[in-house]
Design a binder for these strands. Structure first.
Lengths: 260, 260
DNA sequence: GAGTGGTCTAGACCACACT
DNA sequence: GTGTGGTCTAGACCACTCC
């Protein structure tokens, strides 16, 4: 990192790319952003904690406050950081979310209904990754994986059946007891207990007919239309760390999305 | 609008809120943003055209370039404007979209398949708005509305059946002939021919069973699971101007979504 | 009052597109 | 070369939070 001197006649920024002779140009604030992201990834600043103030970071990286600011701005819009005026900038966390389940887009059709949600774990066991799971999670077929199946209930009515797959190497010691004992969202547990923070996900939605087993879990007739939601979640560095297939009963709920 | 003078001892911005005695504080750039939005809405700058340069706008609104910049930044992230380095800032348009159908999230399961899309209009007629349509479009039950039904085909296979409702007052003269003769996305036609630009939409997704008529249109067995996509689209000022219910056949396609 | 993020300005220079 | 958006700096003041 080489900041511009405070004179009128600046020398070129000499960012990493230009030094390496590469053709790409990377603005200073992008480099700062990368450095901050690295510190987040390394755990220098943990989820829920405050990071140093903009001024402190400006001194540390030898750039102006405005440049740090622009880097933080982008990280905040990507939901990696949370700004709180007058207090500081904090590392985002799934563990203390009041509006729990940030990634769950399911809503009751009747907005008056209180959004009360229960969980019921069906099972949690270590398995060998199938070819497809392995491909998605960037591992080898047959490698150790953890499978979790669970039910989500709104007001006592089962609405979602989730089938979740995690790489075994990142989730050693994840057991049914551990799951049952934890309060709060699953991603909070992953973050707190295993240091794996979900920052982004891709979903593929389809309509499917309920198979016999799922029909039973969701208390619907076999063959009923269900919303299939295949999610691939990523942590820092766009590393895939979770595959999840949810089957949603959409009789009294719907999946909400915003387009722009 | 009262800009700060270029002196060190500034007088307060005296924005609209503080003058009115209201407790709310609105930054200058938000006010600029509102002024630019008003010009977009009034048609002073039309879709596809360039708006004045940042410097020109700064002079016009008597603020610094940086303040105009921040206003434009937000409008660009909201997809109302498009910045093109070295050329200017342009009003976003649906009419010249290469990646047509910006709001359509449907993708082939097999990414290798070329994304070739056909349209077939089923009908287009003037109707009285039902209570539900009227409620959604902010009109009175029984008021004039336009109903369009159409089919989307990927590689000759029907995949989407759309049932579209528009307020009659905003779409006088919209006929089947007009639809059939237009090349490009529907929203391009709305924008070019009727001055109605869609800027945002909300969608509710559910899984449903195909009714007899829809099953026929989509060449699937009756009762087949279909993805129901209810869309409410908005123009400037969050005014609702389109209700659309799409039924998607998700055998070889899926609805793609990104979470963060 | 001290400290933090948020806004605003002014000015310089860089990257890019057109002519 | 000229004009556009894009980056970077420096400094001032405002709004908010906590002591």
């Amino acid at each position: 990192m080489r900041p511009m001197p405070p004179t009128a006649t600046m020398s070129p920024p000499e960012n990493a790319e230009s030094r390496a002779g590469g053709p790409a140009f990377s603005p200073l604030y992008q480099q700062i952003k990368a450095l901050i992201t690295r510190s987040l990834q390394s755990g220098e600043w943990r989820p829920g904690e405050a990071i140093p103030s903009e001024m402190e970071l400006a001194v540390r990286y030898k750039v102006s406050q405005g440049t740090v600011r622009k880097a933080i701005d982008e990280l905040a819009t990507e939901n990696l950081l949370v700004r709180r005026q007058g207090k500081g900038t904090y590392v985002a966390t799934h563990a203390e979310e009041q509006i729990q389940y940030r990634f769950l887009r399911l809503q009751p059709n009747d907005p008056a209904v209180t959004h009360q949600l229960q969980r019921r774990f069906v099972d949690c066991r270590r398995q060998r990754a199938s070819a497809e799971i392995a491909r998605l999670l960037d591992m080898k077929t047959g490698e150790a994986a953890v499978q979790i199946r669970r039910l989500l209930l709104f007001q006592g009515t089962p609405v979602v059946f989730d089938d979740i797959w995690l790489p075994g190497r990142d989730f050693k010691g994840l057991t049914a007891e551990r799951l049952a004992g934890y309060r709060g969202p699953l991603y909070g547990l992953f973050e707190t207990e295993f240091g794996v923070r979900m920052i982004r996900a891709e979903e593929k939605l389809r309509a499917v007919g309920a198979d016999a087993a799922t029909a039973q879990w969701l208390s619907v007739p076999p063959g009923s239309p269900l919303l299939s939601v295949e999610r691939l979640s990523f942590t820092y560095g766009d590393k895939p760390v979770e595959v999840r297939r949810g089957l949603y009963s959409t009789a009294s709920h719907h999946y909400r999305n915003e387009l722009s």
